[in-house]
Computed example of a mutant assay.
Amino acid sequence: MAKEKACRKCKALTSGKVCPVCKSTDLSPDWSGIILVFDPAKSLVASTLEITTPSRYALKVQ
């Protein structure tokens, strides 16, 4: 199983080479914490973190 990486721009998690949310290739293997966003329109945490797309996100990316 491939180790997941986090996008440095939007913090989305991926096991590929391109971010599924913002299409960036600036990925980091050094991240911590995880948040799952199912409905960003109704989520206070998603609005605080400025997340608009349902996905899995890292809380901290180096």
Rank of each mutant, 00 (worst) to 15 (best):
K9L: 02
L36A: 13
K11H: 09
F38V: 11
D30N: 06
V45T: 14
R8A: 10
K60V: 15
R8I: 10
S15H: 12
T48N: 12
R56S: 14
S15N: 07
K42L: 12
K42T: 15
S15M: 08
P20A: 14
S32D: 02
I35Y: 06
D39K: 10
V61E: 02
T53Q: 12
S43R: 04
A58C: 06
S24P: 06
K5L: 02
R56M: 07
C22R: 02
Q62K: 15
D26T: 12
S15I: 15
S32G: 09
L36G: 12
M1T: 03
T52E: 06
C10L: 09
D30W: 00
L36W: 13
S24I: 05
F38H: 10
L49E: 12
T14M: 03
L59Y: 11
E50S: 11
T52S: 10
C22W: 11
L59W: 13
K42V: 13
V37C: 01
K17S: 13
T53D: 06
S32Y: 00
P54V: 08
G33A: 04
A41R: 11
A12F: 08
F38R: 06
L59E: 08
T48K: 05
K60F: 04
P40E: 08
A46T: 05
L13R: 05
R8C: 13
A46D: 08
K42Q: 12
A2Q: 05
E4F: 02
E50Q: 14
